[in-house]
């Protein structure tokens, strides 16, 4: 009976995860981090070989051979952690959600064993501005441009009692016409390209677009397929990127708040 269900529900302790614990959390995502002390040319080469989506690669930066890690391409398969002999570990904190495309890419000087990323995000930024962020409401329209539904499952989790995105004044709305932000998942398939453009057009300006997941950021495992057009930014302008395959609810929440913060800082 309805009242019994409500009674059971009221007897439950709160499961709400405080916002401080959400930001930067990436448990269960298997996003890689590089322990630069263990980096050797041999390991760098091996990493770029085992990575199925070329998230790891070797590139010259300022005339030096660098290990590149593009989080937007990473599908979290974990092969690098096996091949990296301690040089690659699962990230403990993850600050690359909701950032610009340039910021999702990290570089390490292989010989100098040092990170030389030109556009690093500042993890303190969002944390310091939580109070001002929470004074505003945000309406999000989620748009599946061709995803495998893994990202949808995690976005749906944002509304469960652990994450409860509504506490930040963030709502998922049914129509793009009511939305401030489009949260776009999946590589944009050929069959969805028109619908993605039309949905973007229907959102009133000013609007924010966030590309979600490896597929949304880069095409992920499907990059190059004849049936897809490409990443989200191949079809509509994107303001922020949330890597992961799929990104966990914590990463999604962090990313949405970071995009919002960057918007307000403009």
């Amino acid at each position: 009976m309805i009242l019994d269900v409500i009674e059971r529900s009221l007897r439950q302790p709160s499961r709400l995860i405080p916002v401080e614990a959400l930001l930067g959390n990436c448990d269960g995502s298997r996003m890689p981090d590089v322990v630069v002390d263990h980096l050797t040319p041999d390991i760098a080469r091996k990493l770029s070989e085992v990575c199925p989506t070329m998230a790891f690669g070797i590139e010259a930066q300022e005339g030096r051979d660098c290990l590149r890690l593009s989080y937007g391409r990473c599908i979290g398969c974990g092969r690098c952690m096996e091949a990296g002999q301690g040089c690659v570990i699962a990230a403990k904190h993850f600050h690359w959600c909701g950032v610009t495309k340039a910021q999702t890419v990290r570089f390490w000087d292989i010989d100098g064993r040092a990170e030389i990323t030109p556009h690093a995000p500042n993890p303190q930024d969002t944390r310091g501005q939580i109070p001002s962020l929470l004074q505003r409401a945000l309406n999000i329209r989620q748009l599946d441009a061709g995803s495998c539904n893994g990202c949808e499952a995690e976005i749906t989790a944002l509304t469960n009692p652990y994450y409860d995105l509504e506490r930040f004044g963030i709502h998922f709305v049914a129509s793009p016409k009511h939305a401030d932000m489009l949260l776009v998942t999946g590589p944009v398939t050929r069959n969805m390209a028109d619908a993605v453009r039309a949905t973007y057009e229907a959102v009133p300006a000013p609007k924010l677009v966030v590309a979600v997941g490896a597929c949304g950021c880069s095409g992920g495992i499907f990059a190059g397929s004849h049936a897809i057009v490409g990443a989200v930014d191949a079809v509509i302008p994107v303001d922020g990127y949330i890597p992961g395959c799929p990104p966990t609810p914590s990463m999604l929440a962090s990313g949405v708040l970071e995009v919002l913060r960057r918007r307000l800082a403009r």
């Binding site: 059971r8 269960g28 979290g76 499952a153 749906t156 989790a157 469960n160 652990y162 966990t248």
Partner: peptide, 24 residues
């Protein structure tokens, strides 16, 4: 209520095998 139970299982999965949906 059901969403909470589901989430508890996903978190337990992450604890057990490192990913919420048993990928990889």
């Amino acid at each position: 209520y059901a969403a909470r139970i589901k989430e508890s299982l996903l978190q337990a999965s992450a604890q057990c095998c490192g990913t919420r949906y048993w990928r990889g």
